[in-house]
Each structure stands twice: as structure tokens, then as C-alpha cells.
């Protein structure tokens, strides 16, 4: 059962990374236009960023 000492923090850490990623995406307005983003990959124009 000593494994728990590692496994529980690891599972919490992994979950925490997921949560942090979600909060980041929320803060950077990744969910403002899901339909548009799905369609924009089809267009040849350079979008706002990044430009080469």
C-alpha cells in the first residue's frame, strides 16, 4: 500500500494540470467562437496569430 504515497499525489497533480489548462483556455477566450474556430482551419488566410 506504500504505492499510495506516490500515486495519490501523482493523480492529484495530473488532475491539477488538466484544471490549470482549462483555466488558462478559459482566460484566453478559447470558447468564444467554437463554430468559427472549427471552420477557420479550412481557410487559407493567415489568422490573427502566429504569422511566419
Amino acid at each position: 500500500m506504500e504505492m499510495l504515497v506516490y500515486l495519490i499525489p501523482v493523480s492529484l497533480l495530473l488532475g491539477g494540470i488538466g484544471l490549470a489548462a482549462f483555466l488558462w483556455s478559459l482566460k484566453h477566450r478559447q470558447y468564444d467562437d467554437p463554430d468559427g474556430d472549427a471552420n477557420r482551419i479550412l481557410s487559407d488566410d493567415w489568422d490573427d496569430r502566429p504569422k511566419p
Binding site: G15, G18, L19, K27
Partner: peptide, 20 residues
Amino acid sequence: RDLLMRLGVAGFAMMNIMLL
């Protein structure tokens, strides 16, 4: 966004607690 953030935190906690 505020509601969505709380939702995300609750979802994260729910999954971890459910594991335990």
C-alpha cells in the same frame, strides 16, 4: 466565464474525490 471556472474546479474535485 466565472460560472464556467467554478464548474471546472467542481468537475476537477469531483473526479478526484470519486477516484478515492
